[in-house]
Design a protein around this nucleic acid. Structure first.
Lengths: 332, 332
DNA sequence: ATGCATTGTGCACACGATTACACAAACGAC
DNA sequence: GTCGTTTGTGTAATCGTGTGCACAATGCAT
């Protein structure tokens, strides 16, 4: 417990101190290896005394297993992903896996960043971001056996994926809004054209089509409050819509604020606003959003299940489908 | 570009393919090493063709430098830290450093988690969380030379830190509220008793004392909207306060909602509510919070500066002080 | 032509662990 | 007492790079 020693002690040095060979040190730290229990106890005691812990970098090199997991995300701050990230990080930590965050803000260095991470021999890759092409991810991480991804289903033997189905819930929501008398719908996308965005838009477009309607206008934001606010002003003013389906909850809050503040219109009477994701903030009293909600716990359960399959070296990709539900607030 | 090769190619194999020794391969990838430029170009071409990239794990073992950075945080979702995390991650990535997230939710395994990370020979440690004692961090990471931390100043030769000063801004805010006629103040803490919480409370307590006032009540939340909501109900109802200083912005939003919803009181006339952090959400139209704001960019600049000093092996700890400012909204 | 500095490359070892193999000791069965 | 099995430990190779040292080749000045 001297705490002052600058350098980390190595297994060979500890071996000398304990009067054994370095192989025995290693065995003392591997639960299922042949070693006398007296020897193990003595070694662990000496190790504790000198603050020894096996070097995970060296172990990874030998093992061909780093216990590192790359998480590819759009952003850290944005709550639409944050809740899932938080859950996943906890689950990984419980399994003694360490998450490396790859934050892919702008396109230029996304690939370079992923290449850097692949260099660290990560055991798994979870792609949360809809900004990165799955094909790119596969090309870069092809060495790490199959890849765990989410959202985008890719016909590749080495990719497991999670599919999301919100068609039914979207239908319920559209049904309610149409019955409330709204006629002119707009879709406010979160990205210019990502796979997940197209999918979500289709759920609502299909529900409208079923009733002989379609989107009168479409706008593109960037998943942020500010973009929701700005685009909503245009949609309401220029396109005279009375219902806006937003790509996520944060933009929906921005749109609601814009309607109230700039045009003096209130939900749900003058205008209907719908979010997507079902983040905690959407349920706050000041927001009370109607939203197409995904069960985050179930989602992360699915991710963890895929990772466990991968860890157990079960061959072949696997696909899990989750269903969204409508969560009702006072905005639609 | 076959993309089908299961195993990663090694430097020795590439050496055979390029007709050189593995040492030369290594040199081809090190910018400042003695190697013929023709040889380097040829090697890089062959490397690209076979998808070779040097193994960072092996390099780290040899280098004694992992280029990994441990980020110790309270939570990922909570916006009060998220903006800083996001900024820092980008800055680290730009320096080719990979962040490992340690999310310290409950106390039980915090230390174990940090020990696990220290095993990976991280080059730097940034402690954002006020839930972990700096002394623990120092004990665990003492091998990674000095530690980069934030907030808690610790008298330790191996710890650099960032100090935050919000006394003056707190004084401004209290001044305004007192001039508005508020008399009974409460402080709503974010944690039971963390170092940063005590510090922030003191800024406001001092400002009150200067005017012959003090906190009439104190409550403890957990930095969440729900805890802000719940505690505010008690403070307003039971303790009849008319001003609440909150430990962060999210709790302040919860408190504002509680005042409005449960007791029908509005800011700033009936009651004053103040947040801390200055997150983007606080400025949203629906919130418009008065808050003690910290310049996140300046803060992360400071963190990066400390990391750079550390990387350059400049000896000795260093301390940087940042000043908060008052950001005015309609809640106080 | 000789001496010396510079450049380019290979050899071999180090980094710190894990693990197949070998071997000694202990043990039980007959 | 002998053989076979189990148990515990050491030896040495291995994981994939980086790098000090040695050495050949080249360039340049005299």
């Amino acid at each position: 417990m001297s705490g002052m020693s600058r350098r980390r002690i190595t297994s060979k040095e500890l071996a000398k101190l304990a009067g054994v060979s370095s192989a025995t040190i290693s065995r003392a730290f591997s639960p299922d290896s042949r070693i006398g229990s007296a020897t193990r106890d003595r070694i662990l005691a000496v190790a504790r005394e000198h603050g020894y812990q096996p070097n995970a970098i060296a172990r990874s090199l030998n093992n061909q297993r780093s216990r590192l997991v790359a998480l590819v995300v759009n952003a850290i701050g944005n709550p639409c992903e944050a809740e899932e990230q938080q859950l996943l990080v906890h689950r990984l930590q419980a399994r003694q896996l360490l998450p490396i965050i790859l934050c892919c803000a702008d396109h230029s260095d996304r690939l370079q960043l992923m290449r850097l991470a692949s260099t660290y021999q990560v055991d798994h890759v979870v792609v949360f971001s809809d900004m990165v092409s799955m094909q790119d991810a596969v090309d870069i991480f092809h060495t790490t056996k199959p890849i765990i991804v989410s959202f985008e289903p890719l016909d590749n033997e080495s990719v497991s994926s999670i599919r999301i189905d919100g068609a039914e819930a979207a239908d319920e929501i559209i049904d309610k809004i149409v019955r409330d008398g709204k006629k002119r719908f707009a879709y406010l996308s979160g990205t210019n054209s990502s796979w997940i965005d197209k999918l979500r838009r289709k759920w609502f477009a299909d529900a409208l089509a079923k009733r002989g309607l379609s989107f009168e206008a479409q706008a593109f934001g960037d998943y942020s409050y500010d973009s929701g606010f700005k685009e909503a002003v245009l949609l309401l003013h220029r396109d005279k819509v009375d219902a806006i389906i937003c790509g996520n909850d944060v933009m929906a809050i921005g749109a609601r604020d814009a309607a109230r503040r700039v045009l003096g219109k209130n939900t749900p009477d003058d205008i209907a606003i719908v979010g997507q994701d079902g983040i905690a903030m959407a349920a706050w009293d000041c927001n009370d959003l109607t939203t197409l909600s995904l069960d985050h716990v179930a989602f992360i359960d699915a991710v963890v299940e895929l990772i466990e399959r991968h860890d157990a070296e079960i061959e072949g990709p696997h696909s899990i489908t989750l269903t969204c539900t409508a969560r009702w607030g006072s905005t639609a």
